[in-house]
C-alpha cells in the first residue's frame, strides 16, 4: 500500500529563556493510503504538537517529513501554505466555520480563495460534499444557524473539498454531544471506507480510538511500541 505520510526522527524542543523543554524526542510515523489512525496519549505527551508538525502548521526542531511522496519539512512558508491548501485537510475541535458565509460557501472556501471565486464546478462539489455529510438541505444556511454537530459536519466537508491526501483531525468530537459525536465518527469512517480517505485523528476519547484501524501511542514525546502500550487514554 502506498505511503501517504512518512515522518522520521521528529524532535521538537521549546525554549523559554534558558529553559528547554523537549516535547517530541525522535518520533517516527508512517501512514498508508486509506488508513484511519488514532493518535493517542495522555495530556502533555506531545500529540497536539506532533499533529501540528505533521499538518505543517509548526516546524520541528529536527526530523524529516514526506507527504504523498514530497519532502515537505524544508518548504518555505508560502510553499507550506500552498501544500496545506492542496494536499491536507483539517478538522479541529471547534469547527472554526466562517460565520458570515453559508454552509456551501464555507465548504468551497479552500478552493475558491486561491482560484478567485466559486466556479460552477466548485459549487457542484461543495453541494455534493454537503449531501455526503447529510446537509444538502442546509447549503444556503448561514453557518451561524447550524447546530454544533452540523457545523462539525460542514467542517469535515470543507476538509474534503480539495481532495486531500491526508486529513488531520484534532479532537473532532471533543466539543460535541454523544449523538453528534457519533454522527461525525460515522461520517469519517464512511469517507475512509468509501473514498479511501486517510485520517490521522488526535483524540483523548477511547470510543474514537476504538473505531480506528490502529493507534499511534505517544508517551513522553516518544511513540510507544505496540507491545509496551499501556492505557493512557482518559
Amino acid at each position: 500500500m502506498r505511503q501517504v505520510l512518512q515522518a522520521r526522527g521528529i524532535v521538537m524542543t521549546f525554549r523559554n529563556g534558558d529553559e528547554e523543554t523537549e516535547v517530541l524526542r525522535g518520533v517516527d510515523v508512517d501512514l498508508a493510503t486509506g488508513e484511519l489512525v488514532a493518535l493517542v496519549g495522555a495530556s502533555g505527551s506531545g500529540k497536539s504538537t506532533l499533529l501540528s508538525i505533521l499538518g505543517l502548521l509548526l516546524r520541528p526542531t529536527a526530523g524529516e517529513i514526506q507527504i504523498a511522496g514530497e519532502r515537505v519539512d524544508r518548504l518555505n512558508e508560502k510553499a507550506r501554505a500552498a501544500f496545506r491548501n492542496r494536499r491536507l485537510g483539517f478538522v479541529f475541535q471547534f469547527h472554526h466555520l466562517l460565520p458570515d458565509f453559508t454552509a456551501m460557501e464555507n465548504v468551497a472556501f479552500p478552493a475558491a480563495a486561491p482560484a478567485g471565486g466559486i466556479s460552477p464546478e466548485m459549487r457542484r462539489r461543495a453541494l455534493s460534499l454537503l449531501d455526503r455529510v447529510g446537509l444538502s438541505d442546509r447549503a444556503d444556511f448561514p453557518a451561524t444557524r447550524l447546530s454544533g454537530g452540523q457545523k462539525q459536519r460542514v467542517a469535515i466537508a470543507r476538509a474534503l473539498m480539495n481532495k486531500p491526501d491526508l486529513i488531520i483531525a484534532d479532537e473532532p468530537t471533543g466539543n460535541l454531544d454523544l449523538r453528534s459525536a457519533g454522527q461525525v465518527l460515522d461520517l469519517m469512517g464512511e469517507v475512509n471506507r468509501q473514498d479511501g480517505g486517510t485520517f490521522l485523528i488526535c483524540t483523548h476519547d477511547e470510543h474514537v480510538a476504538a473505531r480506528c484501524d490502529r493507534r499511534i501511542h505517544l508517551v513522553d514525546g516518544k511513540v510507544q511500541p505496540d507491545g509496551e502500550r499501556s492505557d493512557h487514554l482518559n
Binding site: G55, L57, K78, A81, A82, F83, R84, N85, R86, L88, G89, F90, F92, H96, L98, P99, F109, P110, A113, P114, R158, A159
Partner: peptide, 16 residues
C-alpha cells in the same frame, strides 16, 4: 483572528 487563523491553516495565502 480565529477566522483568519483558520483560513491560514487551510493554506489561504497572506496576499488574499
Amino acid at each position: 483572528r480565529s477566522e483568519v487563523g483558520i483560513m491560514r491553516a487551510f493554506g489561504i495565502s497572506g496576499g488574499f
